[in-house]
Design a protein around this nucleic acid. Sequence first.
DNA 1: GGTGCGTTCCTTTTT
DNA 2: GGAACGCACC
Length: 623
Amino acid sequence: MRIVAPEEWHSINGITLEKAALDVVTTEGNLIVEAGPGAGKTELLAQKACYLFSTNKCKWPRKILAISFKKDSAENLKRRVVDRFGSEIQSRFDSYTYDAFAKNLLDRFRLALAEDFIPKADYDVINDKNDIIGSAFKKNGFVSQYSSKSKQIINYNTLLNRFDFTFNSISKDVMDVIVRNVWKDLLNGFDDKSSCLTFQMITKLVILLISSNRYVRNALQLTYSHVFLDEFQDSTDLQYDLVKNCFLNSNCQLTAVGDNKQRIMVWAGARKTVFEDYHRDFNAKYFRLLMNHRSAPRLVELQKAMYLSLNDSEDNIIPSEKWNKNDGEVYLLIAENDYRELEWLADNIKMQIKNGVKPSDICVLCKQRPSDYTQGLIAKLAEDGVFSRIENDYQDLLKEPIVRLFLNIIKLSLNTKIPDELENFISEISVLKGLDLYNCDKKDYVEFYDSISHFLNQCSTLINKQCCEDIVREFVNFCVSFVKFEKIKAQYPAYSQGNYFSNVIENFTELFLKNLVQSNFDWKLAVRGFEGQNSIPIMTIHKSKGLEYSCVYFIGLEDEAFWNFGAQSDEDRSTFFVALSRAKRFVTFTFSKFRNGKCKHRTQINEFYDLLQKPGMAEVIYR
DNA sequence: GGTGCGTTCCTTTTT
DNA sequence: GGAACGCACC
């Protein structure tokens, strides 16, 4: 690896960074970066990583740690760094989710905890809503004060988080005693269960570990010279606490990137003041990116107008130079009823596709419950052979490693000559089978490759067999028996818990069969359909965070969709802003006077209409 | 089987 | 805020 002087370094892949971004890359110390939609946050972090490695500011063998919320953001960032820099840097760029980071630390240093707080090695990770928590509370004499189950669950979590890790404290407070005993039970297991921990409990244990054990803390700080925090506006109290405990007053340099205007997770526990707190606690230097590389100028104008209602003073956001000054279309569709609305939508969508927009570059957004708003549209589009689908189930499944493996096997069974998939498959299987391909007997090596090609041949035969309803089930069973369930479990521990694995398999079988039937048992088309390459994604605004599309249709700008506007109007404004800022070139908001036979209103959320109807903002269409 | 009353769910991620 | 449930009662 050639080391370059800082002033010699320039951005990788011919990407030009705006002045502020370049400053973020080269400035030392703790930084806070406010970056609006389309500012290129991931690219910025990737370039900064390259800079730190190239200039040896991140000195070998120290590493960079990146923490994100979602698996795919963590994977994306890692991929981008490897793409930009080269795969030799793989092991020096750790990209984790908060939960994976915490769980990793707990699993490695579990035994460094005080004895009372050591969970069993085979502890289960449980969901916050798991009944086990309720039964642990009941067992220890907790009397529920809420009749409502959801409020009770929130209360359980609050109580669990209140625990201060003092089993020996003399507190006689009834609730303290109960919480202490519940923790004890969940840590040690009860009623023939093993230890059961939620991710929040895991995080709390890691905070305890770090704050009470300076060796672990030092090890962590020695490992990482730089830390990147993505989507920082969504951090919860606990996550911020974790970051503080790990890195405050150390020589690790933090870069937190986020956008207050896209803060739409406060209702789910995001810490409202996290930017200010971090700014103060870490004495961070503030930067703000002003480029919007994503949206066309007319869309940026609307975003700027939106800034005012999000209490933001600055409004000099600059669109990318790739656009002409008047590029971008914004429409407000006001329809007499939902049928007229969907007719216009279907026509418009078909027109976009005819003009060359790929279905996967079009997105339909809803505030919540997409199925209540889009059933008719899905059917109408299907009449003309345009596929669209509600993404929820697919997105969850596509993240599952076992599902990725299935899809990979199907692709290879149809065509063995796709190098990337073949390489992935071979390395995956060799890991699962515990075979080191670079250091094994020639005999094992040959046997391994023979078994792979034999297996793929058998899959191929299976797939080409006469089609029947059970074909997917048969295929899935065949694959699982080839890889051996035990091996899968060993590789992905989550699959050994409860019915998790069988649920994934069940859901995959059902959804894949649906695609198979839809494509007339053409497996190639079914895989493409399953991966969503041919269909228009439909999702909630929350799910769309971080994504971008050429055309965005937001359906149902109605009071009824924003029913909590009174209580969380700031957050709903941000939600509207997020929807708007997903679009590159085209965005439409729709209102329908009737939906599902009910009269709809738009008085509560009038300010959105005022905004859209300002001169030069949106073209209003009546249907 | 109708009524009336109470409750739950909407927007989420994570091994 | 309101749809969709479940349950008790007649």
